Amino acid sequence: MNWFFLQVTNPATTATADTLHKAATPGAQGEHVMNVMDLLANGGPLMIPLGLLFVLAVFFFFERLIAIRKASKIDPNFMYIIRDNIFSGNVSAARSLAKNTPNPVARIIDKGLQRIGKPIEAIEKSMENVGKLEVYKMERNLSVLSLVYGIAPMFGFLGTIFGMLQLFYNINASGEFTPAQIAGGIYTKMITSASGLIIGLLAYVGYNFLNAQIDKTVNRMEAASAEFIDILQEPTR
């Protein structure tokens, strides 16, 4: 009877001991851990253009972010000083302030100050033209982000298609395949699709975030322009 229980419990005891031994051995679990760098290396040659697209997206996102934040910095007292100078008849001081203030609002106001004495419609048109140029400056290079979020997923799918073609070609040529080989080939080739989608998603989010920041700055420019026109018309009311 003792011998029977020993025979029954011994395999379980051995299995438990082996499990504990594997859990305690760091290298035993290594083959089940996904190494990101190894996965990216297995993505194939199309991972190179995907990497370049990612670098472009990151570079131009931060380049535009810095430029837009610099353009959006507006002194809240700027228009009050302009108003006081215009009411006191000191237009030259107002122009000097506008020229020495490096942001789109100041450049728009400076153009309006240059046109003082002309019809309001002409002043508004001149300021509007300057505003369009300032918006163009802020939107410059945003097309790179839109290009990245448009073509990065396509590169990813293309890499997956090439990988699947290669996988099935090898199976057809050798005539030997196992489920493990097929699964391994598929998941490594799907790396390009995942990478392309992630890069495209990041570029899309960055593009829309920057556009939202530009819209906020444009609203400030429009508000300043409207306030300037009101200042010019106020003495005649």
Rank of each mutant, 00 (worst) to 15 (best):
Met164Leu: 15
Val58Met: 09
Gly43Ile: 04
Glu128Phe: 02
Thr9Gln: 15
Thr16Lys: 12
Met154Ala: 08
Tyr80Asp: 12
Asn141Tyr: 06
Gln233Thr: 13
Gly200Ile: 03
Leu52Tyr: 09
Ile198Trp: 00
Ala94Leu: 01
Gln7His: 14
Leu56Gly: 07
Leu52Thr: 04
Ser193Met: 14
Ile214Phe: 13
Ala28Cys: 12
Ala203Pro: 01
Ser174Asp: 06
Arg64Gly: 02
Asp215Tyr: 08
Leu50Val: 12
Arg115Pro: 01
Gly117Lys: 06
Trp3Cys: 15
Ile66Val: 04
Tyr80Trp: 12
Leu167Lys: 06
Gly44Trp: 05
Val33Pro: 00
Gly89Val: 14
Ile108Arg: 00
Met37Gly: 05
Ala24His: 07
Phe78Trp: 12
Phe168Thr: 14
Leu113Gln: 05
Ile82Lys: 12
Val58Phe: 09
Ile186Phe: 07
Phe54Asp: 06
Met190Gln: 10
Ala57Thr: 06
Asp110Tyr: 10
Ala15Thr: 05
Asn172Ile: 12
Ile229Pro: 12
His32Asp: 10
Lys189His: 13
Ile86Glu: 04
Gln166Val: 11
Gly163Tyr: 08
Gln213Tyr: 11
Pro104Lys: 13
Lys137Asp: 03
Leu50Gly: 13
Ile151Leu: 08
Glu234Val: 09
Ala93Tyr: 03
Thr25Lys: 15
Arg95Asn: 11
Ser193His: 06
Lys99His: 10
Tyr207Ser: 04
Met34Arg: 06
Asn219Lys: 11
Pro179Arg: 03
Arg115Glu: 11
Ser72Arg: 13
Glu63Arg: 05
Gly44Ala: 04
Lys73Asn: 08
Ser225Val: 07
Gly117Tyr: 04
Pro119Tyr: 02
Asn77Gly: 03
Ile81Gly: 03
Val33Arg: 10
Lys111Thr: 01
Met164Val: 06
Val130Ile: 13
